[in-house]
Design a protein around this nucleic acid. Structure first.
Length: 561
RNA sequence: AGGGGAGUCGCCAAGUGGUAAGGCAACGGGUUUUGAUCCCGUCAUUCGUAGGUUCGAUCCCUACCUCCCCUGCCA
């Protein structure tokens, strides 16, 4: 989409830290951040915040941002996810250049460093089962107890660890633990496991390894090896920072680099869920049409929905970053998309809920072109012809037989302008046996055609859009709304699925202006007076696009009613 | 023997000893051939609570309250 004015983000605590570091020359003036996804699922809105934050910082401080896959768990990770993550980051508008890495590329070094820890007496092989280990871990009020294997000799540990690597043991038979402090009030320091046995095929290293390092050991080492300066993560890792620092302090002689971990609060958004488990439930339970369903808060879903990368960047700047727990209302994200699309999207006309309007004094079989600007804010984009004839489709909502207070559209005796066409005066309507309105009648004022001299001599308040019945492009349009009807799905003990919005997707056949037949997949438009729509990138065929509603326009009239 | 964080306007968020930035929303007005956009204006004597220090406190001290995170061989 376009590049709207992306203002310089307000100051925040992370920028203050970086600015101080630059001033004190702490990192030799460098700024290196990283976005470290695990390739075990699709990226969601929350990741967009992290991506924009990390890459945005690198961009603003003339630094670099690495894209590193944290792929240390072979049982969950797949190449398919790597590809989709690469796509998503690129789509958001960021470029990691040469800096694409995989934690799995560091397996050999990680292993060497682990042997070093063993040699230093800082790690040991434990042979307790997971259950036994848990039993000895203690609780919030009791210290943990040392494993009976904690005092194995360096030689025995080394031998066992090498045999673990050689594949002599079954999964779970042994683990390598850092020897820190079983009595620490911080659970992460109660001799955390840093290596486990997993006879599983890894998406990149195949069967080369049967022992895999865990996150706390891998992540800090990866950061250090890449000479990251500021390792930015979410708040739940704050408790892990002492371990991050411990590992790098011990490995200082080998690596000699120690990034600063900085934590910020993750994104909480209303009317949606962002936990991986719940998103999987939604897909597997058939509540949505897949990971890229336009209602899903995934980035692939957002893209199909017509949300824009610039909109996400605006959103990230607008919500800021801090350590306070916060809930951002979905309307903030929607407004950001409107703000970008208002500038980016060309205008088109679409009648979504058609009602026939007959211009009784317009000759049958005749038609003429009206000219509509493609973008009111960008006259240089020119105008396009829209055919007008005797029978038009208008919105059912644009006619009221007995108008309510303040209503200024079509009603008997009232005049409105057919947008970009003539002023018409309503003369009445037809009804069927049940009293339902089947057509509206009017007469037009020939001297009032838009763009002709004197056309403004007749002043009207109402202005309605229309599509010629004979020329309309009848197309499928999906009207999407928020996935959940409750601001906080599943609040309390409630099953969050009970809060699903039953009207989150409505498929209609709409009457579109003829030019819309030429829309290409992913083209975004504002359907005037309705909202922003995008040609679906999956289901559109050449010459036969189908549209997804991205977001409606704001409507201050609806509020009063 | 618990530990780690956070509380500043409806929602975000700066400020951190000198008397409360900004954004979004809301509201009022103007423009408008989208009840949209745009433009102008209004919008915290007050910073979780109670004390204390100080000429002066959102900022320092003490106590308390509320919320979030932590006992995966997940990340």
């Amino acid at each position: 989409m376009s590049e709207p004015a992306e203002k310089i983000p307000a100051t925040n605590f992370i920028r203050n830290i970086i600015a101080d570091d630059i001033a004190s020359d702490k990192w030799g003036g460098r700024v290196a951040t990283r976005f470290p996804p695990e390739p075990n699922g699709y990226l969601h809105y929350g990741h967009a915040k992290s991506i924009c934050l990390n890459f945005g910082l690198a961009r603003d401080y003339n630094g670099v941002c690495h894209l590193r896959f944290d792929d240390t768990n072979p049982e969950k990770e797949e190449q398919e996810y790597v590809d989709s993550i690469l796509d998503a980051v690129r789509w958001l508008g960021f470029d990691w250049g040469e800096h694409q890495y995989f934690a799995s590329d560091y397996f050999a070094k990680l292993y060497t460093f682990a042997e070093y820890l063993i040699e230093q007496g800082l790690a040991y092989v434990d042979s307790l089962s997971a259950e036994e280990m848990r039993a000895l871990r203690g609780s919030h009020v009791e210290p943990g107890e040392n494993s009976p294997y904690r005092d194995r000799s360096v030689a025995e540990n080394l031998d066992l660890f090498r045999r673990m690597k050689a594949g002599e043991f079954a999964d779970g038979a042994h683990v390598l633990r850092a020897k820190i402090d079983m009595a620490s009030p911080n659970f992460n320091l109660r001799d955390p496991v840093i290596y486990r046995i997993r006879h599983a095929e890894h998406h990149r290293t195949g069967n080369e390894w049967c022992i895999y390092p865990l996150y706390d050991y891998t992540h800090c080492v990866s950061d250090a090896l890449e000479h990251i300066t500021h390792s930015i993560c979410t708040l739940e890792f704050e408790d892990h920072r002492p371990l991050y620092d411990w590992v790098l302090d011990q490995l200082q002689p080998l690596i000699g680099w120690h990034p600063q971990q900085i934590e910020f609060s993750r994104l909480n958004l209303t009317y949606v869920v962002l936990s991986k488990r719940k998103l999987i439930d939604l897909v597997e339970g058939g509540y949505v049409d897949g990971w890229d369903d336009p209602r899903m808060p995934t980035l692939v879903g957002a893209r199909r929905r017509g949300f824009t990368a610039a909109g996400f960047r605006l959103f990230t700047d607008r919500i800021g970053v801090s350590k306070a727990d916060s809930w951002i209302d979905m309307s903030v994200l929607e407004d950001c998309m409107r703000e970008d699309l208002n500038i980016a999207a060309e205008r088109r006309i679409a009648v979504l809920n058609p009602l026939k309007l007959v211009i009784d004094n317009y000759p049958e079989g005749q038609s003429e072109d009206c000219f509509a600007p493609n973008h009111p804010l960008k006259p240089e984009l020119g105008k396009r012809a829209v055919p007008l004839s005797r029978e038009l489709w208008i919105e059912r909502e644009d006619f009221m037989e007995t108008p309510s207070k303040g209503y200024f559209r079509l009603f008997p005796g009232n005049r409105v302008r057919l947008r970009y066409g003539y002023v018409v005066e309503c003369t009445g309507c037809d009804k069927d046996a049940d009293g339902h309105i089947t057509a509206v009648h009017c007469t037009y004022l020939p001297d009032t055609k838009s763009g002709t001299p004197g056309s403004d001599s007749v002043k009207v308040k109402g202005n309605i859009h229309w599509v010629s019945v004979a020329h309309a492009y009848q197309a499928e349009v999906r009207l999407y709304d928020r996935l959940f009807a409750a601001a906080n799905p599943g609040a309390g003990d409630r099953d969050y699925r009970l809060d699903l919005n039953p009207d989150s997707k409505t498929v209609i056949s709409a009457c579109l202006e003829p030019s819309l037949r030429d829309a290409s997949a992913e083209d975004s438009f504002q359907f005037e007076r309705h909202g922003y729509f995008v040609a679906d990138r999956v289901d559109s065929q050449p010459g036969k696009p189908v549209f997804n509603r991205t977001v409606t326009l704001k409507d201050s009239w609806g509020k009063q009613g």
